[in-house]
């Protein structure tokens, strides 16, 4: 820090800017007052209120269904895709195409999928949200796994094949174990992304099965309640835990 000179100013500003709003939410979630702005004393009543809120509970269950399903599918497809792209294609265009769903603006993907589901006659439900979440989830898994493949050398796989092992055996015995950390990290990231994803879910969901972010959106739209602070604190805790675990499993920053 000391040798940063004047760069300390923007450096400290950035971290204060990023974390003060989050800290305020967490502190206010323990506020006894009904106003989410004025601190009157410590209380955990908003957490109790949260657990008794039927809408939020249902939203949470819906979100978990989508997130678990999307994570499983995206992890399988994304891992295979990463291996296919880096081991068998070696083409920058195919790689860019595989990662495109992570870069395309969510609103564009959302309206495209809405139009597509309407055209082919897929009823909007949790299942259509799951299908949508797999697209970008797969790209994130592929990105993390491709980065990992770039660090490992392919001689073990070649040796395995030279010794007569087939594509499937080589994959099961050699490729998969060496990529395991990246695959787990990728899966954790997809899970968080799906858990928090709002825009695409908002467009591709049916009217009777709101996911948690959709519930939050309608709550926030109609005003500020301390219950949202409590929910925010819990969601932040979940995301932080998952992302830090993913980072410890593999160096996350390499892939982003």
């Amino acid at each position: 820090m000391r040798n940063l000179g004047w760069l300390r100013v923007p450096f400290i500003f950035t971290y204060a800017f990023l974390y003060i709003p989050i800290a305020v939410l967490v502190v206010m979630s323990f506020n006894a007052s009904k106003s989410p702005f004025v601190w009157t004393g410590f209380s955990t009543q908003w957490y109790t209120a949260l657990f008794n809120n039927e809408l939020i509970r249902q939203g949470f269950i819906n979100t978990m269904i989508v997130a678990v399903g999307a994570t499983i599918l995206a992890t399988i497809l994304g891992t295979l895709l990463a291996i296919g792209v880096s081991r068998y294609f070696r083409s920058a265009i195919v790689e860019a195409y595989s990662l495109a769903p992570a870069i395309i603006p969510d609103l564009v993907l959302a309206i495209g999928l809405l139009a597509f589901f309407a055209l082919v006659g897929v009823t909007l439900s949790l299942f259509s949200v799951l299908l949508a979440h797999v697209v970008f989830g797969m790209a994130f898994v592929a990105a993390v796994v491709i980065a990992r493949i770039g660090q490992t050398d392919s001689s073990l796989e070649e040796a395995s094949r030279d010794l007569g092992a087939g594509v499937v055996t080589t994959f099961r015995k050699i490729t998969l174990p060496s990529l395991a950390p990246a695959i787990i990290a990728g899966a954790l990231l997809v899970f968080t992304l799906s858990l928090d994803e709002f825009v695409i879910a908002y467009f591709t969901n049916g009217p009777t099965t709101p996911t948690l972010p959709i519930v939050i959106y309608s709550m926030v739209r109609f005003g500020v309640t301390p219950e949202i602070n409590a929910l925010a604190a819990l969601l932040l805790l979940v995301s932080f835990t998952i992302v830090i675990s993913a980072q410890r499993i593999t160096r996350l920053t390499d892939a982003v």
Partner: peptide, 23 residues
């Protein structure tokens, strides 16, 4: 990691934080 961490958290929650701050 501290830079990317907020990015992986719920976007609505992060926006909501500013409703509280700027109110």
């Amino acid at each position: 990691v501290l830079v990317v961490l907020p990015f992986w958290t719920n976007f609505l929650i992060r926006t909501y934080a500013w409703i509280v701050l700027l109110n």
